[in-house]
Design a binder for these strands. Sequence first.
DNA 1: GCTAAGTTTTAGATCAATCCAAAAATGCCA
DNA 2: TGGCATTTTTGGATTGATCTAAAACTTAGC
Lengths: 363, 363
Amino acid sequence: MRQDASPRQGQRDTASVTLQDIAAHAGVSRSTVSLVLRESPLVAERTRSKVQRSIKTLGYVYNRGAAALRGSRTSTLGVVVYDIANPFFGAMVAGIDAALNREGYVSFLANSEDSPARQQRFLERMREHRVDGILLCPAEGTDPALIDTLSCWGMPCIQVLRHVGEPPFDYAGTDFHQGVCQAMDHLVALGHRRIAFLGGHYEHSATRERWQGYRESLERHGLTYQRLLRSTVTRRDGVAMIQQLMAESPAPSAVVCHNDLVAFGAMLGLKRLGLVPGTDCAVIGTDDVEEASLGDPALTSVATHPHAIGEEAARLALRRIANPEGAREQVVLAPRLKVRDSCGATRPEPGATWTEPSTGEHA
Amino acid sequence: MRQDASPRQGQRDTASVTLQDIAAHAGVSRSTVSLVLRESPLVAERTRSKVQRSIKTLGYVYNRGAAALRGSRTSTLGVVVYDIANPFFGAMVAGIDAALNREGYVSFLANSEDSPARQQRFLERMREHRVDGILLCPAEGTDPALIDTLSCWGMPCIQVLRHVGEPPFDYAGTDFHQGVCQAMDHLVALGHRRIAFLGGHYEHSATRERWQGYRESLERHGLTYQRLLRSTVTRRDGVAMIQQLMAESPAPSAVVCHNDLVAFGAMLGLKRLGLVPGTDCAVIGTDDVEEASLGDPALTSVATHPHAIGEEAARLALRRIANPEGAREQVVLAPRLKVRDSCGATRPEPGATWTEPSTGEHA
DNA sequence: GCTAAGTTTTAGATCAATCCAAAAATGCCA
DNA sequence: TGGCATTTTTGGATTGATCTAAAACTTAGC
């Protein structure tokens, strides 16, 4: 009765072995087999090993879908990011993956491309798949009510990197405010008095935090020069903004950038003007992506540890799933300034800049 | 099939509305509701709209898990890559996501970190979740028998970028062979006679294809200088290899690199030796990652279109799921050489266009 | 008005697990 | 050996959908 479908390559057809089959083979009931599978302490050792043997012999495969239907967990999570092609998010997803893997969880991934509509579609799909929770890097323009809606759906949601809505909510991210302060302090210590901040789009939390850090630092150090340029956060913007700034009078002697992409653009823009980044104008980025150490000059950057953020977010999600009514948590990692050559702190010398070996590889 | 319903803010507990409830509300049977959900042409228009109304009113959410248990599809796919932090894979995953999204599919993502054991664990988990298919970028050292095993499990598997095992198999990737040939032809046309090839680890298909392209090009052009350096494919390797090569006599006048990371490393290594990439030694990379145009000088690279590969792979997977016994397909995209400054073909000039920034002067 | 054919609708079994309460087996001691 | 408490095991109900075959309803033709 079990040899209906043609076994592929001489192997047995292992496709449709069920608890029932194992129970029959081992001479016990379906319930007992279920208990064995879930490592219940109720079953006697003898029975357990007998059932285990049958499981192995028949090549049984656990059906999580069926289990989820009756039980309450699916052991799945939904992850939404807005730009998976950005290596920052790649590293973060790798962190999430590593943390979930340890707990037998598995995650659906979606790329919202910063479109609230796409994000919404995916979240609805996740609901249909009954995921146990969501890790959400909210798309720009996300309705703050979304968080309530999710909670109303009974889906735990951890916001990552950005957050919308009112506290308390679960969140994992980096202290962008502090990161900018570190960069500013460093520049001031190097003697800079005219420091601009480049980039940041719309009003999402991660941008607000950076801008606050910038304004506060100016105040703390009693600096009067203030120049904060809004923009999307690409290299192209970096080029445009630095060129605009350097044409002003007075021009800044240093710039802190929303992320490393903007910083790369700023360095490129300086070079196009015949200026030397780090000498004619200091540049500091944010994120410390792998390419930072590779710039010419090597880019000073505020490391935001995406892999660690991913791990923390995933762990928080698992805690919340285990205890849905627990107090909301905000895990905020400390950033760390990685000083290289682009801020003029060290004298660029050929051969001196190799700090961060990469392990990336493909194809 | 999916109802875009969800009554606004936290009204009733919408969590456990089932087909049964809708059937009762609309005064029809469970079966009829099921048919409506699946847009069957069997149900009369009047009934259909009546049921639709009930669905909306009650805020019903389709339970895909339950559907999958009885039906044959889960509308899920498993995707395995070996380095999600690499922007190349980020772009590829974005392509997969875009293609699947259109068809209502959703995908599990795993990062194997090139560990066959991790890969195996994930694949087994995917089997437990009964995914409809797998997109696999096989980890280095993957047992070729894995493909048969998967087919034996009844899980369609599309290999991506690399392949193991014997044809016929489903595959989506780029023609690395042709890519290297394009790079070689270009260099030869520029007058180079001593061209080395840098990088490639172990013996997986994507490396073999490149090496064959290299050797064949040498032969085709009657070049006698041959230098092929194996290595893992990181920036660090690029630095080491170029330094080794330039110390030889004769040194190469050009190098083609396994990927852009190696090429960046090679350029850095040249600079450390006080040499100018593109002038003292031409450098060509592979992949055309975003950072390529940003190099100093801008990197000439063979574009491998990761987003398109992702889309093709996903579409092929859907075709295979729809028709499991169909003939295996190999979708191989043509690569395209993007000429910039690092191969010395263009004379760097300040103020050039955005896409091909030239910054060679300020080195 | 009665069939025959076609159109809609439905009951009941089924998918593969978990949960629960009760039954069976075992151990302990008088 | 019986009584009682524990330890194991089990049958049957349940989860929320789909499938199948048959029932109920229309319509058309004579």
